[in-house]
Design a protein around this nucleic acid. Sequence first.
RNA 1: GGCGGGGUUCCCGAGCGGUCAAAGGGGACGCGCUGUAAACGCGUUGGCUCUGCCUUCGCAGGUUCGAAUCCUGCCCCCGCCA
Length: 410
Amino acid sequence: MANAPEAPAAEPRFSELAQRLAAGSVDSLPDGALAEKLALAERERRRMRVKLGIDPTAPDIHLGHAVVLRKLRDFQDAGHRVVLIVGDFTARVGDPSGRSTLRPILSEEEIDANAATFQEQALTILDGSPELLEVRRNSEWLAMEMGALLALARTTTAAQLLERDDFAKRLAAGEPVSMLELLYPLLQGYDSVAVRSDLELGGTDQKFNLLLARDIQRAYGVPEQAVLTMPILAGTDGTRKMSKSLGNQIGVTDAPEEMYGKVLSIPDEAMGSYRELLLRGDEEGEGAETGAGARDAKHALARAIVTWLHSPEDAEAAARHFERVVVQGQLPEEVPEAVVAAVDGAVHLPALIESEFGMSRSDARRMIDQGAVSLDDHTLGRGDYDVPVGRLDGKVLRAGKRRFRRLRVD
RNA sequence: GGCGGGGUUCCCGAGCGGUCAAAGGGGACGCGCUGUAAACGCGUUGGCUCUGCCUUCGCAGGUUCGAAUCCUGCCCCCGCCA
């Protein structure tokens, strides 16, 4: 970095830098704030403090988080410091952003466990060197006294909070909004006061909270943060926000084959945004969006994502696995073994499927009846629930497309 | 505090004394087809020792041969008034 502390910030230079760093974002607010922050940091010869808060309400980081984490990484690569706040305290409150209902309350043990894996998984994307990453837990400052909480509550009015889109909508729809939820934006804002953030990142659904944090910082007499919002990544269904609770997520630590398959299951129309939000744009060509071209484009996308989060070798292997198991309907290279015990010389398949694949026996029976279960090449039919042991040893039981077990008779 | 509306299966939502394990949609799963775990079509979707039995319609009692449906009490949500 150049050092010209006395000279007024060379505006064009910082605007340009800010523009580059904000690439891919939806909003960079207020106008010009990011450039000023960059200039200020350089003038003071320090790194910018770039905040991201994540509530450890679910144990895994998914690609939706990855969009923002990747952007944070850009800031690290530019020499700035990421302050990752693990919301162990706010997880107990539950951010209602973009949700229509109250989150379930998690136990302290669950939160701790989630927080640990979160931190670890974030490092698959972030640079973990101490000067570039600071990890904090917001229970450090949010477990405050009642008096302090009241002071915080005084900073904001009910009208301000009710401006928030999802609160307003729920209210209008006659749905409950708890006081606890109303408090959430204040707590998140206080995080920004506590860590003196220069910039905070978040999804577009965080815009309100990120901006309110500025008001709270002002009320506490600390500099107001700039705000950068990133687009929301759709889940594997292609429409709703990716989230664990909707079951449409792709975890950053998902096994390569799993990750590959999940990417292929997104609707064709979602490919473009996946490419833009997750890859840097220079990885793979555009590819056609329809016909066989779409298939190839999607395979390329899956390969690129697995390469990013695992390795090129894993991506290769995952592609082979997919071709073999899904396209050609063959067995995977490795099939886990299951030891079966016979009763009266026969094995009750619904019971076996229940214990091996964790579904109910009724489900298992339905699958057998629907021709979804096979032993080697023989597809079972309606009512084939009991099979003599003699016919089982060494055979591969397949239930549905993706569940396999090689049977060994005890 | 008063008055009114409401809590149904994974979700939304119909049912309002038997024909209800409960319409319809979503989601999920399965089969077919295919360009992929896309799209489309068809089917399945409480559990089990499965042509029957058991459990479920906020919770607890009650009426009835019989209740998700009626009554009583309680809990929770929403609205209006205060």
